[in-house]
Design a protein around this nucleic acid. Structure first.
Lengths: 328, 328
DNA sequence: CTGAAAGCGCTTACAG
DNA sequence: CTGAAAGCGCTTACAG
């Protein structure tokens, strides 16, 4: 790994000063076309690439955004990543990606990330002390944070209105009870399930709750199948996300039951891949393009000082909405 | 945007030298526990975060990998991204993500990326002059490069053996002709289609080719539907990737045709989301975990000098394989 | 255990 | 149009 050329090397080889090399490399005014051409030729021949560290030290504004996701192979996250990178790039920011799903030491990965970036967006899922220690002083925007009072900035989700619309829609169809296949968090019921339960009750419907351990796709499928077998009478199923809704639809078909004729299935997320699937899953959709844009804009505003690093002004709220397609 | 604390500020506030601050921050030996604790407390209270530029300039090895993808909302890319970030993180590298699909100025985005990284992996799709100019001197590994002789390193795909297996499988089923719904590249037929055509011919089957303009999902769906209507007799369809295979399956169902009973459908890629879909698409699968791992390992080897920056030793080859599921 | 000095590779005023 | 000087914020030997 040979030492690479520096501005000094180029200056010496071209017989000019460092400053002139800098002018040529950065397309600055005040340099004759001839000198510029010669310097650029020399730079090229030496494989000269300006050091980002030298540059970063000498210049003021830095624009590296850390994006923390949990498992990019779940299409939910790429949809978000696409919005975040798009908005960030348009604002001149680079995006450093951390997928924490494969990491044996999540905290070490995030600590490393923290040292490389000027702002963070995504799913941190850290206890407050750790989060404060790692991201002490830089803009942080959590997405759908688990806490009611997020430590830093946040884009929070409002699932309730869509849940209410769903309950009304189902009630109009004559549905009397709904089985929710839920991921099993440590405390037994997800926040989504809690909202759904309260909205079902409000509408006078019965809530059946089936928490399953989630992990591998194969494991999820097995658990979903077992759950359906344990609830043979279920005619309406809400899955905890679109991916699990696909699993539910597949398991139902394996059991000879038609969707939506025999069983209605509803997902959560609103992934665009749903448009390609038959039947297209009805779902509670969140606009991830909007979510990503808002999150990045919060970071940018925090960076300039227009937006505080925490508190109510550092939050934005996005609603899910009921997206009726074919599966319910 | 207030100026943030530097090592000098911490040293002054703690009444020690910069060197001592450095020792405390980096958990180095040769510092008394008391001093260390005090320095860390001061650092914390000042929201001190060591500058990555200062650090980078003073230290030798840098580990930032650029990952260039075309559209992360196509699940193919996240599967690759997951493997790349996993392998890179394990080796102590950070990953800078560039999704070029939303970019109005792809070259500018890549030029910016080039200035931030110590190696590049992904889909560059640049003409040789531009590629050489942007990535002059750093390790570059293209994935499935369009050129026979890639300019830098590469992980190339070998689709032929799987195509041959597919043709044999279809021939055994009594299939006599296959319609390929192909993306339409500038020159009219994709590399995949060419391989397929030659293998079909070799097996004595007839090749029907239907290039479609690809772009938005909705646009693809419309084009796929129109193509199927134009080929009402098609009983076996190869789609140019798994996503388009889903589109084909949906369009067939809309037309009252069953898969695979009436029409067999085959995709390319082997996306794991296929496991969740009914019928599960038969496909020519590439192991993207392997691809990502090989690509990163090439960059690491190039970095240390064990692997040349270009030429045959800078290439790895990965085979697709026929993955029989339910749709054919 | 602690500190003074040198150096990493750039850019930004400032002179000429 | 060109260059000499200062400074950005760290770490790495080297003294003490």
């Amino acid at each position: 790994m040979q030492r690479s050329a520096t501005i000094e090397d180029v200056a010496a080889a071209a017989g000019v000063s460092r400053q002139t090399v800098s002018r040529a490399m950065n397309a600055m005014p005040g340099i004759s076309p001839a000198t510029k051409a010669q310097v650029l030729a020399v730079a090229r021949s030496l494989h000269y690439r300006p050091s980002r560290f030298g540059r970063g030290l000498a210049k003021a504004d830095h624009r590296m955004l850390g994006l923390v996701l949990n498992d990019v192979t779940n299409p939910y996250y790429p949809a978000l990543a696409s919005a975040v990178t798009g908005t960030a790039n348009r604002a001149g920011w680079n995006v450093l990606l951390a997928d924490t799903s494969h990491s044996t030491d999540r905290e070490a990965l995030l600590a490393d990330l923290a040292g490389q970036v000027d702002g963070v967006v995504g799913y941190l899922w850290l206890d407050p002390e750790t989060q404060d220690r790692l991201f002490n002083g830089i803009p942080v925007v959590e997405i759908d944070p688990p806490r009611r009072q997020p430590l830093h900035g946040a884009v929070t989700f409002n699932l309730r209105p869509a849940m209410r619309d769903l309950v009304r829609y189902l009630a109009d169809l004559g549905v009397q009870r709904v089985l929710m296949i839920d991921e099993a968090p440590p405390d037994g019921m997800s926040a989504r399930a809690r909202v759904f339960a309260s909205e079902l009750e409000r509408g006078g419907l019965i809530f059946d709750h089936a928490p399953i351990e989630t992990g591998s796709v194969a494991g999820d499928l097995a658990a979903i199948g077992a759950t359906l077998d344990a609830h043979p009478g279920a005619e309406t199923v809400l899955a905890y996300n679109d991916l699990s809704a696909l699993g539910v639809m597949g398991a139902l078909r394996d059991r000879g039951r038609r969707v939506p004729a025999d069983v209605r299935v509803i997902g959560i997320d609103g992934l665009s891949i749903g448009e390609l699937i038959t039947p297209r899953p009805t779902t509670l959709a969140i606009d991830l393009t909007e979510v990503g844009r808002l999150a990045v804009e919060l970071v940018l505003g925090m960076r300039t000082g227009e937006i505080p690093l925490s508190g109510p002004d550092a939050r934005r709220r996005v609603r899910h909405r009921l997206l009726l397609r074919d599966s319910a």
